[in-house]
Simulated scan of single mutants.
Amino acid sequence: MFEQIFQSVGEVTQVYTLVDFYTYIKGMEYLICVGFFIGFHSFYKFVINPEEKRDSIR
Rank of each mutant, 00 (worst) to 15 (best):
G39K: 12
C33E: 07
F40A: 09
S56K: 11
F36R: 11
C33V: 08
K45C: 01
Q14W: 04
H41M: 09
M28D: 09
V9N: 10
Y44V: 04
Q7C: 08
E11P: 03
T17N: 08
E29F: 15
F43D: 05
E3H: 13
F6R: 12
F43M: 09
I57N: 07
G39P: 07
V9F: 11
L31D: 12
Y24A: 11
I25T: 06
F46V: 00
M1W: 02
Y30M: 13
V34Y: 12
H41T: 05
F43R: 10
Y44G: 00
F43H: 09
F2I: 01
S56C: 04
F36V: 13
I25D: 07
S56V: 07
Y22T: 12
V15L: 02
Q7V: 03
P50T: 09
R54D: 02
G10N: 05
M28Q: 13
N49F: 00
Y30F: 12
G35I: 02
R58N: 00
D55M: 14
S42V: 12
K53E: 07
R54T: 08
F46C: 01
F21Q: 02
Y16T: 11
R54M: 01
I25N: 10
Q14L: 08
F2M: 11
K26W: 03
I25Y: 08
S56H: 06
I38C: 14
Q14D: 04
P50A: 05
M1D: 04
Y30S: 13
E51Q: 10
V9T: 04
Q7S: 10
D20C: 06
V47T: 08
M1C: 05
Y44Q: 11
G10S: 03
F6A: 09
T17M: 04
K26H: 12
D20P: 00
F37N: 07
R58I: 08
I25K: 08
F40V: 04
G10I: 03
G10V: 09
E3L: 13
E11R: 14
Y24I: 01
M28T: 14
F37T: 09
V15R: 02
F6V: 12
L18H: 10
V12T: 15
F40N: 09
L18C: 13
E52F: 10
V47E: 03
I5Y: 04
F2R: 05
Q14K: 15
K26P: 04
K45S: 00
S8V: 05
V9P: 02
C33M: 07
H41W: 08
T23D: 02
Y16I: 03
V34L: 13
Y44L: 12
K26V: 02
I32S: 02
V19I: 12
T23I: 04
E29M: 14
Q14T: 04
V12Y: 02
G35D: 14
D55S: 15
V34P: 00
T13G: 01
F46L: 02
Q7L: 10
N49I: 00
G27W: 13
G27Y: 13
S8M: 03
F21S: 01
F6K: 14
S8K: 11
K45P: 00
G27M: 11
K26M: 11
